[in-house]
Amino acid sequence: MTTAVPEELTEYPLSVLLTPPDPPAAPVDFDAFWQNTFVEFGSGPVDWEVTEPLEPTPTHRVQRILFASSTGEQVVAWLALPHGPVTRGRVIGHGYGGRTEPDLADLPADTAAIFPVAPGQEANPPGRFPALSARHVLAGIQHRETYSHRYSAADLWRAATVLLDAAPDAAAALDYQGGSFGGGMGALALPWDERFRRASLDVPSFGHFPIRLSRRCTGSGESVRQHLRQHPEVRPVLDYFDAAIAASRIRIPVHVGAAVKDPSVDPRGQFAVYHALAGPKRLTVRGSGHLEGPIEELSDGLFRQATEDFFAAATIDRA
């Protein structure tokens, strides 16, 4: 059940959002934890199989697949492979709740893509983690090794391995794209995997927990905030899954979409991810995030176009 949040608490002046906050303190072994996680889950081969061919598009053939998750289960993904030569690759994350089909609308004709579904999320069969975001965000939170977000981030590495197995030429220009939950998971995954060239993170969640926990919201953060009232001992675990801390380790170019108004993901946390990035970065300021209506539709469209321009520019520079 979501919590109603007064509208005035979901919007901030742009001058406030463009001022970098004090960075959250990273655990002393933050890097070692994630490097070890990558070695454990992201550095080897990944078993996968095609389960169903889908109707091809004019530019791509599409397959539903299963691949071996970091949880030890099989998880669903979709592969989209160009009919013609492959010059780029893309791992595309999703928002909290999962996905039931791939979104192929803006996928360039030369780009091979994989659309993985995070462990426990919709399209996957019931397994280790619950599907409901309010429960998924708390699953395994008692310890950093068991937390659901560790496995969700790790499966992005594994999805990249599957994509490069299916389309080896994509290794020359592998990108990541994800929004909300997928934006936060992308930030956690990117610093440790040198295969990625560029990334686009839209309204990224899980950024700057001191900020994220300071305000009610309508998203998964509210479940965490309420849980900590009864279980304050798990608070240190969250620092290992702070997207703003992880962003300070990302050195590839990153495009961030951050909203000035968002009742689900605190805008201050979104901008904190952008501010923390250690490499070249580009910001698109969105009018809103996680809201229905014409401003949201316009924000979505502008950001998607900016993302395609961002990825395409790197291809032109390399040519």
Rank of each mutant, 00 (worst) to 15 (best):
residue 159 A to S: 13
residue 56 P to K: 03
residue 170 A to F: 08
residue 314 A to L: 13
residue 176 Y to N: 04
residue 126 P to H: 11
residue 40 E to K: 11
residue 195 R to S: 08
residue 318 R to I: 04
residue 276 A to Y: 01
residue 40 E to C: 01
residue 258 A to S: 13
residue 35 Q to K: 15
residue 95 G to A: 11
residue 147 Y to A: 03
residue 246 A to G: 03
residue 67 F to H: 09
residue 297 E to S: 14
residue 275 H to I: 13
residue 162 V to T: 10
residue 259 A to Q: 01
residue 8 E to K: 09
residue 135 R to I: 02
residue 171 A to P: 08
residue 265 V to F: 01
residue 183 G to P: 01
residue 208 H to L: 07
residue 248 S to H: 09
residue 186 G to R: 03
residue 269 G to Y: 00
residue 53 P to F: 07
residue 301 G to L: 12
residue 170 A to E: 00
residue 66 L to Q: 11
residue 84 G to D: 13
residue 187 A to I: 06
residue 168 P to D: 10
residue 18 L to E: 15
residue 2 T to F: 02
residue 247 A to I: 09
residue 82 P to T: 11
residue 134 A to T: 05
residue 59 T to Q: 15
residue 176 Y to E: 02
residue 207 G to W: 00
residue 156 L to R: 06
residue 213 L to H: 09
residue 54 L to R: 05
residue 197 R to I: 01
residue 188 L to D: 04
residue 73 E to K: 08
residue 241 F to L: 08
residue 221 G to T: 06
residue 63 Q to Y: 14
residue 77 A to R: 06
residue 122 E to L: 13
residue 281 K to D: 02
residue 300 D to E: 08
residue 68 A to Y: 05
residue 8 E to F: 14
residue 216 R to V: 05
residue 103 D to N: 13
residue 316 I to C: 05
residue 31 D to F: 01
residue 278 A to V: 05
residue 127 G to I: 13
residue 290 H to T: 01
residue 274 Y to N: 00
residue 312 A to G: 15
residue 46 V to M: 03
residue 51 T to D: 13
residue 50 V to D: 04
residue 6 P to F: 04
